[in-house]
């Protein structure tokens, strides 16, 4: 039975730790002269991107190619998707092409779930971001990055580490996936945002909630800033960008209140001057560039564990 990676909640602690451990071994590959492993030779990975994305698509493409898989990129612009083809017909086309895995990014929450459970395709489905719902591989790479900097013990455990996720939680699939995964891994997550940028039902998430950034960050071991997704905003969620930056942006003054070991993260793309100032983004404690490097290793781990063997080693049941 095929398995998929649709939500960070699909991963048990053992699964998540297996992905992180595998990623740690695969990260060494980046330092070798030949950055290639034969594990997925002859397998086909389709990148199905209904929404614009540069780094996630490139990251998945690099990951699949380093594992010797064949990669087909299928972007909405300039394809039949922009001519009105339905998700179902696109899926049937992919199935006919013999895709082993479909990496899907879609503007509608739940589209990867639909693709995985409709019976249209037999391939593994990896959610690369759906609407405002989830982005599990981003959460895995964030956890991996935290584990490398903050992890304790031989396994790089995040037990008891405090993570502050700050900004537009309402529109952020990264925040939801991170909250779920970090909770699974034993970290304590605090979400910080203005009241208008929390989603309905956030009180049922396994997190603390705060409206006061200055009170939260001095205790945090990692501070993750989220982009304000203005393209998804139709109404007024805060009075002005300047007021948002002053209350919820990370600037040099706030950075000075962090503990010495605290790292600053951002899933990208960042808007310098809005949620994060340039001096913070370029500071030594900022691991934003490393997150991108780690993204390739984590996505290799996910693809390897889903496709490498006769049956997937991680992920939720179909």
């Amino acid at each position: 039975m095929k398995r998929h990676l649709l939500s960070a909640a699909d991963l048990s602690r053992d699964d998540a730790e297996l992905v992180l451990r595998t990623a740690a071994e695969l990260r060494e590959l980046a330092d070798r002269p030949i950055k290639k492993l034969p594990a997925l030779r002859g397998r086909t990975v389709v990148n199905l991107f209904f929404e614009d994305s540069t780094r996630t698509r490139i990251s998945f493409e690099a990951a699949a190619k380093r594992l010797s898989a064949d990669v087909i990129n299928f972007a909405a612009k300039g394809s039949s998707l922009s001519k009105g083809e339905s998700l179902k017909d696109t899926a049937l086309t992919l199935e006919a092409m013999g895709a082993d895995a479909v990496v899907v990014r879609h503007g509608a929450s739940g589209a990867p779930h639909r693709l995985a459970h409709s019976g249209w395709v037999r391939s593994s489905v990896v959610n690369a971001g759906d609407g405002t719902h989830e982005h599990p591989t981003q959460a895995l790479l964030d956890a991996f990055t935290m584990s490398r900097h903050l992890g304790t013990g031989p396994k790089g455990s995040l037990d008891g580490r405090r993570v502050a996720i700050v900004g537009d939680v309402l529109h952020s699939r990264v925040a939801r996936s991170n909250a779920l995964l970090l909770n699974t891994l034993g970290a304590e997550v605090t979400l910080v945002a203005p009241p208008t940028l929390f989603p309905v039902g956030v009180e049922s998430w396994p997190v603390e909630i705060s409206y006061d950034l200055d009170a939260v960050i001095p205790k945090a071991d990692a501070v993750m800033m989220l982009r304000v997704q203005r393209e998804r905003m139709s109404g007024g969620f805060f009075p002005t960008a300047r007021e948002y930056s002053r209350r919820y942006g990370l600037d040099g003054r706030r950075m000075a209140t962090l503990q010495d070991h605290t790292i600053v993260m951002h899933p990208g793309p960042m808007v310098r001057g809005m949620e994060i100032t340039a001096d913070v983004a370029d500071a030594d404690r900022s691991v934003i560039v490393e997150q991108v490097t780690n993204g390739v290793a984590v996505r290799m781990a996910v693809l390897y564990l889903l496709l490498g063997g006769s049956e997937p080693a991680v992920g939720g049941e179909e």
């Binding site: 451990r21 595998t22 695969l26 034969p38 594990a39 889903l306 063997g309 006769s310 049956e311």
Partner: peptide, 21 residues
């Protein structure tokens, strides 16, 4: 030197855990 990724029976079993290289 971990050889997991180079094994010829990789596809006959569930994906194996990688060991350190």
């Amino acid at each position: 030197l971990d050889v997991t990724m180079y094994r010829d029976d990789l596809r006959m079993k569930p994906a194996r855990t990688l060991l350190p290289t």
